[in-house]
Simulated assay, not measured.
Amino acid sequence: MAKYALRALALVYLLFLLVLPVALIVWRTFGDGFGPFAEALTSPSALHAFQVTLTVAVWAVVANTLFGIGVSILLVRHSFPGKRLLNAFIDLPMAVSPVVVGLALILVYGRFAPVGGLLESWGIQVIFSTPGMVLATVFVSLPLVVRAVVPVLEELGDEQEQAAHTLGASRFQAFLRITLPGIRWALGYGVVLCLARSLGEYGAVAVVSGRLVDQTQTLTLFVEERFQNFDQPAAFAAATALALIAVVTLLLTKLLRPKD
Rank of each mutant, 00 (worst) to 15 (best):
A88R: 08
L54A: 15
L180H: 09
N229L: 07
V76M: 04
C194R: 04
A5P: 01
V76G: 03
L74C: 10
F230E: 06
F175D: 02
T240K: 05
A88W: 11
R7S: 12
L9I: 15
V26S: 08
G116W: 03
L119Y: 10
A38R: 08
A241M: 14
L176E: 05
V71D: 04
Q232C: 04
G70M: 01
T65Y: 09
W122C: 09
P44A: 00
V192P: 02
A239E: 00
T249C: 12
E120S: 15
K259V: 15
V248W: 10
S121D: 10
V108G: 01
L107Y: 15
A246T: 14
K83I: 07
P114H: 02
A169D: 03
G188W: 11
Y4C: 02
V58R: 06
P181S: 00
A186C: 09
L11N: 04
L176Q: 11
S43P: 04
V19A: 09
L86A: 06
A95E: 01
L20A: 06
T55D: 01
G190C: 08
L15D: 01
T137E: 01
G82E: 00
Q125W: 06
V96I: 15
T55L: 09
Q125A: 13
F230N: 10
Q162M: 11
A235R: 10
H48W: 13
E159H: 10
Q215N: 11
V61I: 10
L18D: 02
G168R: 00
I178H: 10
T137N: 06
L107M: 10
G35K: 15
W59Y: 15
W59P: 01
E39P: 02
Q162E: 14
G31I: 03
L119P: 07
L242E: 03
C194W: 10
R84F: 05
S121Q: 13
P131K: 07
L135E: 02
L47A: 01
P21H: 00
E225T: 14
L20F: 14
E201S: 03
E225D: 12
L18P: 05
R211F: 12
H165I: 10
V101R: 05
T53F: 07
D158Y: 07
A46C: 06
P143S: 02
F67Y: 13
R111H: 12
V108Q: 01
S209Q: 03
A241I: 06
L75K: 06
P258L: 00
T166L: 12
T29G: 02
F112Y: 13
L66K: 08
V22S: 14
S129G: 00
F230I: 12
L9D: 00
V115Q: 03
R177K: 14
G117Y: 09
T65A: 07
G70I: 00
E39D: 14
D231G: 06
Q228C: 01
L250D: 05
L11G: 08
A206K: 08
Q215D: 12
D260W: 10
G116K: 02
M133C: 08
T166G: 07
L195K: 05
N229A: 13
L15C: 11
E201V: 05
T137Q: 08
G182I: 07
V140L: 12
G203H: 12
W59A: 14
A186E: 02
